[in-house]
Simulated scan of single mutants.
Amino acid sequence: MTANDAISLTAPDGATATLSLHGGQVLSWKPAGGAEQLYLSPRSAFTPGKAIRGGVPVCFPQFAEGGPLPRHGFARTLPWELVQQEQGKDDALAVLRLRDSEATRAIWPHAFELELSVRVGGSSLDVELACENLGDVPLQFTAALHTYLRVGDLDAVSVEGLAGLRYHDSIKQAEALQRMDLLLTGENGVLDLDRVYYGVKERPLLVTEGRRQVVVRHQGFEDAVIWNPGPERCAKLADMPPEGWSEMLCVEAACVGRPVELPAGESWVGRQSLRLE
């Protein structure tokens, strides 16, 4: 990644975030007086057409392999443009934009505009994704903010707020019910996680590791994805170090179970807010 691709945000209180125009992606988040909260793989490929492994990739207009497009769509591999950057009284803001092109219309025949708004300040990071249908026919998409949270000891991590929700387990290709909080115990099969939890909506999720807690809130996104490749799958990922799985947990705001239906001329907005407690 070149210096021209990097956007640095610094709030008046010292909270920072770094964004990449490649993929329209948050790469780093440090709350005021705090340590790095996001995982970015040291083997990430910062090259045109390749996805960056870590931070907060934008999955659009397709999540995973749920359609004919490349995995997780094309937004995370295309160049975005910076349309606004400012420091306010309490925070700092950047707005990035991606519009349809000949390349996107060749595989997804829709006119659209995406805006990613990133606001950092205090102990919070807010990431908002907006999509406007610029065409004259309805469009449909699935999407996610594929947030890689950094962890120090995965065995000590739990995720509260999922109890009572149904989920799709992509590893077992089965539907199940989450009966209690999700505990990451380091057992084989528990760590190889790839789950879509349906109907999370605005219920807060609490990711706890020892005394550190990150509260994750969604607006506009119906679902949540919890993902960790585990040691075996991680070893097969060229852009992750073999031990990378033990340093991250993806907790993602997502619209997967029910695609977003967007009439011509209409807009959709989804937001993920992270707060370090």
Rank of each mutant, 00 (worst) to 15 (best):
T2G: 15
A6K: 14
S8G: 08
T10D: 06
G14S: 13
A15Q: 06
S20Q: 07
S20M: 10
L21K: 04
Q25G: 02
V26G: 00
L27K: 04
G33R: 05
G34E: 15
E36H: 12
Q37C: 06
P42I: 14
S44V: 01
S44L: 09
T47A: 15
K50S: 03
I52N: 09
G54V: 13
G54K: 01
V56R: 00
P57G: 02
P57M: 08
P57L: 05
F60L: 11
P61S: 15
F63K: 04
A64S: 15
P70V: 12
P70D: 09
H72Q: 12
A75W: 00
R76S: 14
L82Q: 10
L82D: 09
Q84R: 14
K89S: 15
D90G: 05
V95D: 02
D100C: 14
S101P: 05
E102K: 14
E102P: 08
R105N: 10
I107H: 03
P109S: 14
F112K: 07
E113K: 10
L114R: 10
V118P: 08
S123C: 09
S123A: 15
S124Q: 13
S124C: 09
S124H: 12
D126W: 03
E128D: 02
L129S: 13
N133E: 10
D136I: 10
L139C: 11
T142W: 13
A144R: 06
A144K: 11
A144S: 15
L145I: 01
L145E: 03
H146Q: 11
T147R: 01
Y148E: 00
Y148R: 00
L149Y: 01
R150G: 08
R150T: 08
D153V: 02
L154M: 04
V159D: 03
E160V: 08
A163L: 08
G164N: 09
R166L: 03
R166H: 13
Y167N: 07
Y167F: 15
H168L: 05
K172H: 05
K172L: 04
Q173G: 05
Q173N: 03
Q173K: 14
A174V: 10
E175C: 06
E175Q: 03
L177G: 04
R179V: 15
M180Y: 10
L182F: 12
L183P: 04
L184Q: 11
T185W: 08
G186W: 15
G186F: 06
E187Y: 06
E187K: 14
G189C: 11
L191H: 01
L191I: 12
D192H: 07
L193T: 03
D194R: 01
V196I: 13
Y198F: 09
G199A: 13
P204E: 04
P204A: 11
L205Y: 00
V207Q: 02
R212V: 07
R217G: 11
A224D: 05
V225Y: 02
N228P: 09
P231H: 09
E232Y: 02
C234W: 03
C234E: 01
C234H: 04
L237A: 04
P241F: 00
P242D: 14
P242A: 12
P242E: 12
E243P: 07
W245E: 06
E252M: 09
A253L: 03
A253Q: 05
A254P: 02
G257P: 02
P259I: 12
P259A: 13
V260P: 10
V260K: 02
E261P: 03
E261Q: 15
P263V: 05
W268G: 04
L274A: 11
L276P: 02
E277H: 05
